[in-house]
Design a protein around this nucleic acid. Structure first.
Length: 173
DNA sequence: AGGAAGATCTACT
DNA sequence: GTAGATCTTCCTA
């Protein structure tokens, strides 16, 4: 089981290391397992993307200590993030795509994976790990590709999207 | 109270 | 490839 302290580091580092990890979800007594195959890093300071850099609850949540779950609602979808860095840092990592291991569902997109795992606003501001959601380590080796973030209107000139090479569940090539 | 924007998805061509 | 639906949150009056 991955401890909360795992997330108390730079968002980009956490985003890279999250790839290949196994996301565990206890949904009504059934354990769902899914491998993380795509992530994006978000920085509040100087990050023009999204309303997370504006005032409000999202900004406050991103400033919390690493390991808190942040659920962002947009376009009729819930997107799941995990806050990274120490308290006051305002960073987070978005989970963009998973590979289902012991169930069948579409998880090749940030909105889809939340729907598949039953993630909604109820997880907002919860710590990970918790009773219903946690992460397990993996020894698998693979190649990581870095690229520009998807769907963002004003992106930074940095590669903050990471995904596993040649994985069919990645949301976009 | 109302409006607009937004890190999306689906369906159709 | 593009258009349209969809809904939460934040901003303004």
């Amino acid at each position: 089981m991955i401890k909360r302290e795992f997330f108390e580091r730079d968002a980009e580092v956490v985003a890279r290391e999250l790839l290949g990890k196994i996301l565990m979800r206890n949904l009504n007594g059934k354990i769902m397992k899914a491998k993380i195959v795509e992530t994006e890093a978000y920085y509040n300071e100087k990050d023009p993307a999204s309303r997370a850099c504006k005032n409000g609850d999202l900004k406050e949540t991103m400033k919390m200590k690493g390991g808190n779950i942040l659920v962002y609602g947009v376009h009729a979808n819930w997107l799941m993030n995990i806050v990274t860095g120490n308290e006051g840092k305002a960073e987070a990592v978005l989970l963009r795509a998973l590979e289902p291991l012991n169930f069948k569902a579409k998880t090749s997109g940030p909105g889809l994976l939340c729907k598949a795992l039953g993630i909604d606003k109820g997880f907002h501001k919860k710590e990970i790990p918790n009773d219903e959601l946690w992460l397990e380590d993996s020894k698998e080796k693979f190649e990581i590709i870095a690229g520009k973030r998807i769907g963002v209107k004003k992106d930074l000139s940095r590669n903050l999207r990471f995904y596993i090479k040649e994985n069919k569940w990645v949301s976009r090539k």
